[in-house]
Amino acid sequence: MYQPDEIDWQLIEYIQDGLELVGRPYASLATQLCLSEVELVARIENLQCTGIIKRFGIVIHHRRLGYKANGMVVWDIPDQQLIDVGKHFTQFKYVTLCYQRPRHLPQWSYNLFTMIHGLDREQVITNVETLNETCGRFPHEILFSQQCFKQCGAHYVYQKRTEA
């Protein structure tokens, strides 16, 4: 699978927050990297073809979902049942993320993370109860969000590789 080289990373860092609204938005990076603008555009095409860039275009601001409440629900599932339970959870429309993550024993025994939405807190709790009933009941906790400090797309910070 293609991995970005150093020039790709510099290009990614340059374009990730959006192109400037000027006639030749790649010109200054091209000068900086001693490449032609055509070569930079070809690299963007390559990043698209290799599946690194999912789409390249106008990005509309996300509209707020009707869901008011969300809870990160963490589950302690026996390892041998994890795949089945994880697949089971993905069938419910209010489950929007479902990830396996490592336990950190003794202080953290949860290995399955789900994001559960609801119109309000009570509905989130009801939805979690439904999940728990239908998966066979496992230890879990709901971590409601109190305050969102930051939410934005992944941002890559390029650090030039230096020889040790």
Partner: peptide, 14 residues
């Protein structure tokens, strides 16, 4: 209305 003109990266790909 728009946040930027640029790439959307595939999550977890790089």
């Amino acid at each position: 209305v728009i946040s930027r003109i640029g790439p959307v990266f595939k999550p977890h790909r790089i």
